[in-house]
């Protein structure tokens, strides 16, 4: 469907959608870290969306797909479409109880994550409103 392609399955909307997926997952992860700041032997986890996205886009660029017919499909976005957050453990030094959550850092990350989430939503809405204007604006009779 055209609307679907414009809003959700083209590359940029897909990047935005994945970004929101990752940021909501990260929000959950950071909240878990903060919630477990006193749990013995708990290790803080995080995900890096930018890094993962860069990897996918770069690997997509390395694979050169040439179309010799206008009916050919382009390079697939599957790498991006099935991108999943891969959490990693933070290497920060642990306290005496084996817990390495740094509350100040986590709070900072949480605030940053929230700002990014809002920014992505704003960008998505702006793109949507452009399409909406094309759909609803009629020539004046």
């Amino acid at each position: 469907m055209l609307i679907d392609k414009l809003l959700f399955s083209d590359k940029t909307p897909l990047v935005l959608k994945k970004g929101l997926d990752f940021q909501s997952a990260r929000n959950l992860m950071l909240s878990t870290n903060i919630g477990n700041m006193e749990t013995p032997d708990f290790k803080a986890h995080d995900i890096n969306f930018e890094q993962q996205l860069r990897d996918v886009i770069k690997s997509g660029n390395q694979l050169q797909v040439r179309s010799t017919n206008s009916k050919h499909f382009g390079a697939s976005d599957d790498g991006l479409k099935f991108l999943e957050p891969s959490p990693f453990e933070l290497k920060d030094p642990a306290k005496s109880n084996g817990n390495n959550v740094n509350i100040d850092k986590e709070m900072g990350k949480l605030a940053e994550n929230q700002i990014m989430y809002t920014a992505f939503i704003q960008l998505m809405m702006k793109r949507g409103s452009t399409v909406r204007s094309a759909v609803t604006e009629l020539p004046q009779q």
């Binding site: 590359k11 990047v15 935005l16 996205l53």
Partner: peptide, 14 residues
Amino acid sequence: QKEADMAIEDFATG
């Protein structure tokens, strides 16, 4: 519009 899409991508990839 293409420029805007590129800007969004650059922003998302950091």
